[in-house]
Design a binder for these strands. Structure first.
Lengths: 147, 147
DNA sequence: ACGAAACTGAGAATCATTATCAAGATAGCA
DNA sequence: TGCTATCTTGATAATGATTCTCAGTTTCGT
């Protein structure tokens, strides 16, 4: 996990390569996502953010950031897309998905667990015609609020 | 994996408990899903099915079957929901998610792999305030068609 | 066969998301 | 500093998936 400042510089560089600017609006989106403890949808971000960014702009910011590989989309319950900072920024993690309210919480595995899981994924994908590039373990259940 | 006939009887029983009927339209949806080798969206099913069921009815069938626990929704790329037969009907499995075309393919792990994964999940969820009820391993990459 | 309850079809309505287009901000450069 | 090309933004219209509504139909138990 890198510090906010470092993240900002990394993102600025990445956006530069993509030929787009790291504007105030986009910084605000990244900030809100960095503050969040899990994926957030456009409308959730819209509420989270103090300044009243119009939704259409928010969507555009998200899609620009996504296109540049800064965000990772996560398609969740009720047909909406939530985004989080891409793994190269936020670190590799997994998800606790609440089947009741649909929220997704990030968790990180201990190095040992992660190593075990990686080995398992490798073993599995060796046998199929599929070029694996990553994995996420989705654990389903009820979150603390929805007990 | 159970046979079509058995599945039908199990579903009929389950729907009975839920107080809804197992009608021709609903049988058709289940049939199409049983034939599929992965999750299918409403519009995909609409094409797959010979008879011209109206989309609105198809959506309703899906939501009734989902509500009764017969289907499992799977929210995928491009903001659409695909359904597949629930695990208690189709067996526990995992997903190969193509990041390019968004299709999802089911895979089953060997008993040994599955046991290992289950143990891992158990270890992980022991430490968090989350009532886990299931899990899916999502492997991301490019499918055979999108190489 | 009769009535209540569940189902269906057609279309309107809703919700998330995308596209459009004119106006505003910026960077690079003369 | 001012110019110009380019990227951004905001407001709004448009799209696509999904849900809702309501009137007509089928089904089940009696």
């Amino acid at each position: 996990m890198t510090t906010g400042n470092t993240i900002d510089r990394e993102i600025e560089a990445r956006l530069g390569e993509a030929g787009v600017r790291y504007t105030r609006a986009r910084r605000a989106v990244v900030g809100a996502l960095a503050r969040a403890d899990g994926p957030r949808s456009a409308s959730e971000l819209h509420e989270d953010m103090d300044q009243d960014v119009p939704l259409s702009s928010l969507y555009r910011s998200l899609s620009v950031l996504d296109g540049a590989g800064v965000l990772e989309p996560h398609n969740s319950l009720k047909g909406l897309t939530r985004y989080e900072l891409a793994e190269w920024l936020a670190g590799h993690h997994h998800h606790l998905v609440c089947l009741v309210c649909g929220t997704v919480e990030d968790i990180q595995l201990s190095a040992e667990m992660e190593a075990r899981l990686e080995k398992l994924v490798e073993t599995v994908t060796d046998e199929v015609s599929f070029a694996a590039s990553g994995h996420t373990l989705e654990v389903h259940g009820r979150c603390a609020r929805c007990v």
